[in-house]
Amino acid sequence: MNVLIVEDEKGLALEMDEFLSHEGFTIEHARTKKTAGEKIFVNNYDFILLDLGLPDGDGFELLKALKNLKDRNDAVIILTARGAVDDRIMGLEQGADDYLAKPFSLNELLARIHAITRRKHKLESNEIAVKDFRINIQNRTVHYREERINLTKKEFEIFNYLVLNKNRVISRINLTEHVWGDVLEINSDSNFVDVHVKNLRKKLSQFTPVDWFETVRSIGYRVNI
């Protein structure tokens, strides 16, 4: 899948590049509205990561231009430090697929990209197998073989996110942010998420030992598969 990163901050663009390349994406860069416009006009992208505050104009105009092109199915994720509620609403209204406020975690970006991919292209099956468990993303359910495991909404989110970012340590903060969004940015307790993970693991281990669900001491969690 090819991704266009429209971002004038070179440092950030390079980090996203590195991370996404590692995940197997093909990356192109545009640092101004002008070059981005040209690239969008010429190529189809699976994803356009769009910064709103570009040196020569507003990213919203690029979004508008893209939506005026025919037969385009490029998914757009807006990345911005503006973070105003209005921006978020306006971006989604104008056809952006998602919106991430800076600073964001690259894991979170990846999770959003996966979610959009599934929603948009229906390329992957809605089911992910984890050992003997199956996660159904559409129905938001988890099954062990044929038996349904009763997970709360948050436990499902946590499990899903960890599986999506498999073999990678996910910090508590990252996990908290993913599950609760920005609400907890104030006075967040770092062990906030531990209760849920504990319950989740208890529910899973009723069926089979889950030693692949690892707690990384003082940092967070990792699902090794």
Binding site: E9, G11, L12, E15, M16, E18, F19, H22, A81, G83, K102, P103, F104, S105, L106, N107, R168, V169, S171, S218, I219, G220
Partner: peptide, 29 residues
């Protein structure tokens, strides 16, 4: 917010390197 974004992305990328010692990993987290 932008510089924080850069640093945090950079640190996340560092974490992807497999040869990191546990100690450095902890420090980065």
């Amino acid at each position: 917010l932008t510089p924080i974004s850069i640093i945090s992305s950079r640190l996340e990328n560092v974490l992807l390197q497999e040869k990191l010692t546990e100690d450095s990993e902890n420090k980065i987290f």
